[in-house]
Design a protein around this nucleic acid. Structure first.
Length: 298
DNA sequence: GCATGTCAAGTTGTG
DNA sequence: CACAACTTGACATGC
């Protein structure tokens, strides 16, 4: 079992920069490309530092933040890597990240944000979503990430119809996206039970988020959900997600706490081969703490 | 320096 | 009906 860190560090001096479309659009094109080039290089440098820090801390997976190349897909201020003055240095840095990650078996993934909705009835939403997935796949190929994980999206009052739209879009995705895509149960709409038939049909891996499962239960117990989701990975190492509720289980359980409560770690995960992404505000400190708490029982 | 408002994008649930 | 939540802060601006 390996544990994964999501996007950011708390104590380590590793940071990622971003910018906004508004700022870039107020600049001359060349000036904007200079600015974004500096940010992309900074982020590529820090991504290498991130996987090195993960390796040093015994963390076996890292989720890369989506805006590694900020606003790359924006219709007005978007750009290609080769447009950036420092493109070559940036590529070199990403290759180094890939080489380091492969050498030390650090698994890399992406989790595009809520705007990626393949089940939407709106053509422009789906179109933007596919473009966003292509951007993630482009980065994934450069750094050697094997998973791009999204949610089912909205239900629009009819889950089967929404999932049918999802499936149709999936079948048209470019190969570099389709071979990396996974879908995760969420805390409001789609459960493991909802997603499983589509995942089996499409050969699409299902990520079991046990916190979402507890917020949005479907009758499966955690072991059943874990087993069924794991089978969709067809021999690849399954991913699962865990977090603890900030206000405890008696309050609103959805907001994430700083650390993982050991009691929230499913017993039936013990001894399994899988990647456990830790979604906790204390970031690498939370990952290290739960790894130590579970030490000897994995 | 530090506080504050803002930032592309979707959808759902809460007050 | 506005707004927070989602995986989540960081940047730009003005004092």
């Amino acid at each position: 079992m390996r544990f994964g860190l999501c996007c950011l560090f708390l104590a380590e001096k590793i940071s990622f920069r971003t910018t906004t479309a508004k700022v870039l659009s107020a600049m001359e094109r060349k000036q904007a490309l200079d600015k974004v080039s500096n940010i992309c290089l900074h982020n590529s440098d820090n991504l290498l530092l991130a996987v090195q820090a993960a390796q040093r801390l015994g963390i076996g997976a890292f989720r890369i933040m989506s805006p590694l190349f900020p606003r790359m897909t924006h219709p007005e201020v978007g750009y290609r890597l080769e447009d950036l003055p420092q493109a070559e240095t940036i590529s070199t840095r990403l290759s180094a990240t890939r080489a380091f990650s492969e050498e030390h078996d650090i698994r890399l993934s992406f989790h595009p944000d809520q705007f990626v909705v393949l089940s939407s009835p709106h053509a422009h939403v789906v179109e933007n979503s596919v473009r966003e997935l292509e951007y993630h796949a482009f980065l994934a190929e450069l750094v050697g990430a094997d998973v791009i994980n999204i949610h089912g999206g909205g239900t629009y009052g009819d889950k089967p119809a929404a999932l049918a739209r999802f499936a149709e879009v999936f079948k048209r995705l470019p190969e570099n996206v389709a071979t990396r895509l996974s879908v995760e149960n969420d805390d409001a709409s789609y459960t493991v039970t909802d997603l499983l038939p589509m995942c089996m049909e499409l050969g699409l891996p299902l990520i079991h988020d046990v916190h979402h499962h507890r917020c949005n239960p479907d009758g499966l117990d955690e072991c059943e959900a874990t087993d069924l989701a794991a089978a969709t990975w067809r021999g690849r190492e399954p991913y699962v997600h865990i977090s603890s509720p900030r206000e405890g289980w008696q309050g609103n359980p959805k907001p994430h706490s700083d650390y993982i409560d050991e009691a929230d770690f499913p017993q039936c995960w013990l001894g399994r081969t899988m990647t456990v992404d830790v979604e906790a505000k204390a970031k690498e400190l939370a990952v290290v703490r739960i790894m130590q708490a579970m030490n000897g029982r994995l």
